[in-house]
Design a protein around this nucleic acid. Structure first.
Lengths: 354, 354
DNA sequence: GCTAGTCTCTGTATCGATACAGACTGGATC
DNA sequence: GATCCAGTCTGTATCGATACAGAGACTAGC
């Protein structure tokens, strides 16, 4: 059996409290006694106070949870998510706090259980599809959280760090529209929760449940509405999973049909890169001249010459964690909007004259 | 105040134990009573058993720690580390276990404290410099762990998953030696703990404390010994921090001196890519023709045409976590060596005739 | 009609610590 | 010599749950 605080106390002949103080409040006892206690602990092989017991008594844990409502492995596959994590890690490091990555089972009941069982002092909820149930659980636990998307129905004291999704997406779409493109496909992850990969029809953008996706699609649509192309004329394509592979699969066949789109606006760089992959598979001779834009500006985007919308990744993570660990006194300061910028590269060009 | 188990018990008029059973052992009570209890809990806003209290009583936590004995942010900067994490995440997911990323302060006392305080059931120790103190703490806590490097002094029941570092490095060096290179630089992170960036002299490879680095350098040295180039003739270069930038800085000036090396063997792809960065900074006209090899085969290596040694990254992480979460009955099965392969690309070529 | 066995549920002990009020000691102050 | 105070240390209550032995009630079997 591992020795407990009590064992050390007995060995030295002091009370349990004093041993506890030797570890947690060195100013509460003489240096000599503290020395004797730590020596005895070393000798007995006592590894220091049990973290769990300590957390229970103190009422906090010293770690924050990071929630991805998709496969945890996804978090490491999307470069943007990785950089977000890096930012969270940086802030956590500064606050001597650990990060708990909680994998969520696909079954909702199990997933709820996972969030209920996470031993953390708060959550960074990385914006993912349909996280409302997760927020419910977190609220019920009375834990603070920071989300990466503003929800329309959020109470004003709920903190978030995000970007103006709509305006950012608009900038990319306006660029493409300015190049003359009118037959355009919009590619996104989780347009509708359980829709299959490929083109689909949605009555209006407000039907899209996921707030981030909805925001970006709205921005795209706005820009094209201004040049007379309305929602119904845009081809909406679903790419469940947000991976290059999923994107490539989703746009397969898109360019074989009559009057194919001359541009694809993707909701993330990963998806956009997937489109480029799909195009690269065509023989150079009759490869369709398609303009492609992404979103995020991950490192790979620069290498691939992808036109995209840059948003600060590490900073998003860092601020999210900071808002959680060091909440601003003023509720309004808990709502952070980060700047974005359109980065024009080679993947977009004027619409070809046919 | 948040309601506790007791509150729910009082509301329904049953004992605390019964409420506990309603959550953790549904077979121990009638479905009807369980229904009443869960309803009452919902009504009171009871979020389910407190994870900390539960862990204390049960004696386990349901999460594993991942330890990087360098900045936590580093873990997200090195693509190999990210893929390792992805592997750990995958296994954790399968076992319904969370991952705790513990940032380690630079001061050793604080770092010990961090490991002592981590509420986990075990650790995956990602191979990093000088982790012996960390293993000591983990052993003292009586927690299981899996390391990514075999330590010579490890007891036979200590589990690890690694590669034959020496043989893997040998394969890269033999390739370079076969191309005729004889003036060669070996570039590594943490050759000696506190050495500055740049060339340094070490009496023999056995002086290098870090086991992984030592293994790789030995492999490099072996191959060159076979062609008559001995240790003292090899230029050893330190690049503290294992980043592209650190590598570029470390090799700055290396090619300006008389009889510069015609090849650089790096201990990781990140370092090798840094060398390529440094070379790319030269005007094309008088850029020195240097062969470069890496180690790991991260995705960027392929894009950069880097010759490197491939090792399975996700698999390493997955197996590490699996060994931890589902220990093999037979101690010998706790020692896993993964295959490696030399991947020859454009960054190596025959030594130029001068 | 009696013993056995199955279902439910309760009560008590326990997990390993920390908070906080108070007790004791010894020296300085008046 | 009484008072006060700072510096140390102790004792008790508490954090919020789970394990386990056992108590009743009820059905089966002989």
């Amino acid at each position: 059996m591992k020795p407990t605080l009590q064992a050390v106390a007995d060995a030295v002949g002091v009370s349990r409290s004093t041993v506890s103080n030797a570890y947690s409040r060195p100013d509460q006892l003489s240096t000599s006694l503290r020395g004797r206690i730590l020596d005895a602990a070393r000798q007995l092989g006592y590894p220091g106070p049990n973290p769990t017991a300590r957390s229970l008594r103190r009422g906090f844990v010293g770690s924050i949870g990071v929630l991805f409502t998709s496969q945890l492995s996804y978090a490491f596959t999307d470069p943007f998510a990785v950089r977000f994590l890096a930012g969270v890690g940086e802030a956590a490091e500064r606050h001597s706090t650990s990060m708990l990555l909680v994998p969520l089972p696909t079954a909702v009941t199990d997933a709820r259980r996972a969030v209920e069982n996470a031993a953390v002092d708060g959550f960074c909820v990385y914006c993912v599809a349909d996280e409302e149930w997760a927020l419910d659980v977190i609220r019920a636990r009375g834990l603070p959280f920071v989300s990466t998307a503003r929800r329309d129905d959020a109470s004003p004291d709920e903190r978030y760090v995000g970007i103006d999704e709509r305006a950012a997406a608009y900038s990319a779409a306006a660029h493409v529209a300015g190049l003359g493109h009118r037959r355009v496909a919009l590619l996104a992850d989780s347009v509708l929760p359980d829709a299959p990969a490929g083109p689909l029809t949605v009555a209006g953008v407000e039907q899209v449940p996921h707030p981030t996706t909805r925001g970006r699609l709205s921005g795209f649509a706005d820009a094209f509405a201004e040049v007379g192309v309305d929602w119904a004329e845009l081809t909406l394509v679903n790419a469940p999973g947000n991976s290059r592979h999923a994107a490539a699969a989703a746009v397969a066949g898109l360019f074989d049909q009559p009057d194919p789109p001359t541009a694809v606006l993707a909701g993330s760089d990963v998806l956009a890169l997937g489109v480029l992959d799909a195009l690269a598979a065509w023989p150079t001779s009759d490869r369709p001249p398609v303009s492609v834009t992404g979103f995020d500006d991950v490192p790979e985007a620069a290498a691939a010459g992808l036109t995209t919308v840059r948003q600060p990744a590490e900073e998003k993570g860092r601020i999210a964690a900071e808002l959680l660990l060091d909440p601003p006194a003023n509720a309004a300061d808990g709502h952070v909007l980060l700047p974005t910028a359109l980065v024009v590269r080679d993947s977009t060009g004027p619409v070809p004259r046919s």
